[in-house]
């Protein structure tokens, strides 16, 4: 280990070595560990106003976690169905959005990596990236207008005679799912694209030459090769969707509540930072466990994703 550091310093010189270590250290400690540690600390203390922080009233307690489960700090008679169902719905919706993105992006990524060539490929990549110069809020509001009862989609459907009443895309969460799927589509496409592109084209041809139909080529050759990319895309989309706030706020119907909105309310409307922290920590841990579980199921190692 000492030899490693010795080597590291000799290779990069003192100034660069100190900069690299300091900046990585700052990033890990100040930007990641410390804030999360504060959140964890907050979530485990009683909810008291800031002047009383540090006093005896600000004692450690698991009441906020209990509240998430039972809807009350003391009683354990009934479950907190309101929050738990929102939580479950959020996770399920995030899974659903991840699957939609996967279904949309895998063919596109495959096409970009192995069928499109030269200028046409560059044009396609650009046309995927450029729309994301439009900021997230503007995009969400644009979706809201588009899916509104007088929006272009309802108008087009009515003009075509497919429906005679405007369909409520907002209330039925279609707008929300579309908005979320669209918001994170690049995070799905590019990891898969990178993974698929590194596949030797001869392997696809070899499988075809041996008589394989296209679906089996994907099942046996392309998807196994692209699995790390698929996993990393799915992980990012799932995590970000479960933690999205703006899109659910704007595109969500009156009845549909996203779990992040409950966290937001706890912090900003109820002034209950402790409960907000606890809920945020729960969301984080459940998401991580879910992702690790899925990686286990699909036999992907963490190291492979980083390739």
């Amino acid at each position: 280990m000492t030899a490693y550091w010795h080597n590291f310093f000799r290779k990069h010189g003192a100034a660069l070595s100190v900069f690299l270590l300091a900046s990585v250290g700052f990033w890990i400690f100040m930007m990641i560990i410390l804030p999360q540690a504060f959140m964890l600390d907050f979530s485990l203390r009683a909810n008291v106003p800031p002047p009383k922080w540090g006093t005896d009233a600000h004692h450690y307690t698991a009441e906020h976690y209990r509240y998430m489960l039972y809807g009350s700090a003391q009683s354990t008679d009934s479950y907190n169905f309101v929050d738990l169902s929102v939580f479950a719905r959020t996770i399920l919706a995030a899974i659903f959005v991840t699957l939609i993105d996967l279904a949309l992006c895998y063919p596109v990524a495959y096409y970009l990596a192995h069928a499109a060539t030269g200028g046409w490929r560059r044009l396609m990549v650009l046309s995927l990236i450029v729309p994301f110069w439009v900021n997230e809020l503007l995009r969400a509001f644009a979706f809201k207008i588009m899916f509104g009862s007088n929006g272009i989609i309802n108008n087009a459907l009515m003009w075509a005679g497919a429906i005679d009443q405007p369909y409520d895309f907002i209330r039925n969460s279609v707008a929300l799912y579309s908005g979320l799927s669209y918001a994170y589509i690049l995070l799905m496409i590019f990891p898969i694209y990178n993974a698929v592109e590194s596949l030797d084209r001869n392997q696809i041809e070899a499988a075809r030459d041996l008589g394989s139909p296209w679906w089996r080529i994907h099942k046996r050759v392309v998807i196994p090769h692209a699995k790390p990319g698929i996993t990393s895309g799915c992980t990012m989309v799932f995590m970000l969707t479960a933690g999205a706030l703006a899109a659910p706020q704007i595109l969500g119907g009156p009845s549909s509540l996203w779990f992040t909105q409950i966290i937001y309310q706890a912090f900003n409307q109820a002034g209950n930072w402790a409960r907000g922290s606890a809920y945020a920590i729960i969301l984080l841990i459940v998401c991580i466990l879910f992702v690790l579980f899925m990686m286990r199921v699909f036999k992907v190692k963490l190291g492979e994703i980083a390739r």
């Binding site: 030797d200 001869n202 392997q203 041809e205 070899a206 030459d209 041996l210 050759v221």
Partner: peptide, 11 residues
């Protein structure tokens, strides 16, 4: 026909 590729293209 079956083709053997220059780089073999084994899976």
């Amino acid at each position: 026909t079956a083709l053997i590729f220059q780089n073999l293209a084994l899976f």
